[in-house]
C-alpha cells in the first residue's frame, strides 16, 4: 500500500524535495557566505580585498599567500596562537576531568550536603559570570596572578554547567556494573576511569567541544587580566588590530589571521560532530 501511495505522490514528492533543498541551500549560503568571503580575502592583495565581492578578476594571477607571511612577520600572531592553544587545551583537559569526576560523585553517591550543594550550584548557574568580574579581578590581584596564564586557566577549570551535564549523563550508568566492579575489588577511581567514562563518552566529546570552544573564543576575561602583548590570546590580538588607524589596518592580513583562528575549532567540531549531537540529545532533553 505504501508503494502505490508513494508512486502516486512521485511528482509532488520531487517538488517538495526540491523546495526543501532550495530553502536549505539558501540558508546555508547565508550561513557560509561570510566564511567564503573570509577565505577569499585572506588570499587577496590589499587593493583587491574590497575591490571584488569574492574572487578577484584574475584569480590565478591575483591570489597570493603573502598575507600569511605578513601575518607572522609583522604581528606576534605565532605567539598569540601558541598562547591560545596552551590556555584553551589546558583549561579543557582540566575542566572535563574535574566535571566528570564531580558529576560522577553527584550522580552515583549519597553523601551529606548533597542537596544544599546542588541547590547552591543551581543558583550560580543562572548568575552571569559578569557579576563575578570585579570580585574575581581583585582576587587575581591578591594572588599576584594578574597577567599570568594561571589567572585564565584556574578559574576556567570550574564549570557548574559541566557538573550538571556530567551528572545527567552519569545517571545513565547502570548501577549493577558498579556493584559488580566493587565486588571484584575495584577502587572507586578505577571504576570512574574504566567503567563510567567509556559509557558517557558521547558527553565527554560534547563537553570537550563546548569547553574548548568557550575557552578559545573567550575575550572579556583575558582582556581584563592579561597585560603583556606577549601573553595575549588570539581574540584579543586580532580585535586589537582593529584599533589601529584605518589606513594602517591590513585587511587581508586580518582575515588571514581570523581564518587561522577559526580553523582549529572547525577541525575539532568536524571530529567531534557525532559525539556532540548525541551528547546533546542525552543532556538537553531534561
Amino acid at each position: 500500500m505504501s508503494a502505490t501511495r508513494s508512486a502516486l505522490k512521485r511528482p509532488a514528492f520531487a517538488l517538495r524535495a526540491l523546495a526543501v533543498h532550495a530553502a536549505l541551500l539558501a540558508a546555508a549560503a547565508v550561513g557560509l557566505a561570510p566564511f567564503l568571503w573570509m577565505c577569499c580575502a585572506a588570499f587577496k592583495r590589499p587593493e583587491d580585498v574590497f575591490g571584488s565581492a569574492f574572487l578577484p578578476p584574475h584569480p590565478l594571477h591575483d591570489l597570493t599567500p603573502g598575507n600569511f607571511a605578513m601575518l607572522f612577520h609583522s604581528t606576534p600572531f605565532a605567539r598569540w596562537l601558541l598562547n591560545s592553544l596552551f590556555v584553551s587545551s589546558t583549561q579543557t583537559v582540566l575542566v572535563v576531568t574535574f566535571s566528570s569526576l564531580g558529576g560522577f560523585a553527584l550522580a552515583k553517591y549519597r553523601f551529606r550536603g548533597k542537596k544544599p550543594l546542588l541547590g547552591l550550584m543551581l543558583l550560580t548557574l543562572v548568575l552571569p559570570a559578569l557579576a563575578l568580574l570585579p570580585g574575581a579581578y581583585l582576587l587575581m590581584y591578591d594572588f599576584g596572578w594578574i597577567n599570568s596564564y594561571a589567572a585564565i586557566i584556574v578559574p576556567g577549570s570550574v564549570s557548574v554547567l559541566g557538573m550538571f551535564l556530567f551528572r545527567q549523563a552519569m545517571l545513565s550508568v547502570p548501577d549493577d556494573l558498579l556493584h559488580a566492579a566493587r565486588v571484584d575489588g575495584c577502587s572507586e577511581i578505577r571504576i570512574w576511569w574504566e567503567i563510567a567514562l567509556p559509557i558517557v563518552r558521547p558527553m565527554v566529546g560534547a563537553y570537550t567541544l563546548l569547553s574548548f570552544l568557550g575557552a578559545w573564543n573567550s575575550y572579556l576575561w583575558p582582556q581584563v587580566v592579561l597585560q603583556d602583548q606577549a601573553k595575549f590570546t588570539l581574540p584579543i590580538g586580532l580585535a586589537g588590530m582593529l584599533s589601529l588607524p584605518e589606513y594602517q589596518t591590513q585587511y587581508g592580513v586580518l582575515m588571514a589571521g581570523t581564518l587561522l583562528s577559526v580553523l582549529p575549532v572547525m577541525l575539532l567540531f568536524f571530529v567531534l560532530q557525532k559525539d556532540f549531537v548525541s551528547g546533546l540529545a542525552s543532556g538537553a532533553i531534561k
Partner: peptide, 24 residues
C-alpha cells in the same frame, strides 16, 4: 583511552604548547 582520542589530542596539545612556551 577511555576519554576518547580527541581529548587525548587536546592533552597532547596542552603539554606541547606548554613546553614550547617555557622554552621560548
Amino acid at each position: 583511552f577511555p576519554l576518547g582520542k580527541p581529548i587525548l589530542a587536546i592533552l597532547a596539545t596542552a603539554l606541547l604548547s606548554g613546553a614550547a612556551l617555557v622554552c621560548m
